[in-house]
């Protein structure tokens, strides 16, 4: 009788629900870490920008944000380890995929940090506050030049057809969110029932819908 090799992905992989849960934890933990770092950066830049001395309140706020960032990063790390250990050794294509996603995450962190540093408050990274051209131009170049290169590499060398299909499904939901959501908001605004449409809110909504459907389709 043929000896069967023990660990296969289906033997050891976590159940569907826990797999999606771990992916959600990785996403939430990464976002939390970036947010915590952004808050620290914003607090310090705003404080020292005003030329004030260090007070207990500032130390407590920075320490709290640091704990939140470290805790979030730890959750993301543990969830990543649990997911990758259960699945066994990654293939070459998966390794390239991971490298691209880490690079995108690092770029996102740099963008968030620069936006926070440039703004008047820790939460201004997500606002429509004006930016100095010295910050706006490099950030626009990262998004307009570096991101397309990474995306091209990701589509050509890293993803396989199953993830490509999941991504296309996410994109379909994303575009319909835009087709339906944007004019609805615009009409309600013209009727005096909603605030003026905000491009960045629409953008983040589409990113969230696309990402959620993409991850669901990939890991379900």
């Amino acid at each position: 009788m043929m000896a069967m090799k023990a660990p296969t992905m289906d033997d050891q992989a976590p159940a569907m629900g826990s797999r999606i849960g771990r992916v959600a934890l990785i996403a939430a933990g990464s976002l939390g870490a970036v947010f915590g770092i952004g808050v620290i950066t914003g607090l310090l830049s705003a404080h020292f920008g005003r030329g004030e001395s260090v007070e207990f309140r500032l130390v407590a706020l920075v320490a709290g944000a640091a704990l939140f960032a470290i805790g979030s990063a730890w959750i993301a790390y543990r969830a990543t380890r649990a997911l990758t250990r259960a699945a066994g050794a990654p293939t070459a294509r998966e390794r390239r995929n991971r490298i691209v996603l880490i690079a995108c995450g690092a770029l996102g962190g740099i963008i968030a940090m620069l936006l926070t540093l440039a703004g008047p408050s820790p939460l201004s990274a997500l606002s429509n506050d004006p930016l100095p051209p010295a910050i706006a131009v490099p950030l626009a170049l990262i998004v307009a030049v570096l991101m397309p290169v990474l995306c091209l590499y990701w589509h050509r060398r890293a993803v396989d057809e199953q993830e490509e299909a999941a991504y296309k499904l996410g994109a379909l939901f994303g575009i319909y969110t835009y087709f339906i959501g944007a004019p609805t908001w615009w009409l309600l605004w013209r009727g005096g029932l909603a605030p003026a449409p905000d491009g960045i809110v629409i953008y983040f909504t589409i990113i969230t819908v696309t990402g959620a459907i993409w991850l669901w389709a990939k890991y379900r």
Binding site: T8, M9, T91
Partner: peptide
């Protein structure tokens, strides 16, 4: 006697796809 990872490598896809 192949694992999903081995089959994925031979087909040039991810383990998730297999």
């Amino acid at each position: 006697n192949w694992s999903q990872a081995e089959l994925a490598e031979r087909l040039d896809v991810s383990r998730q796809a297999v």
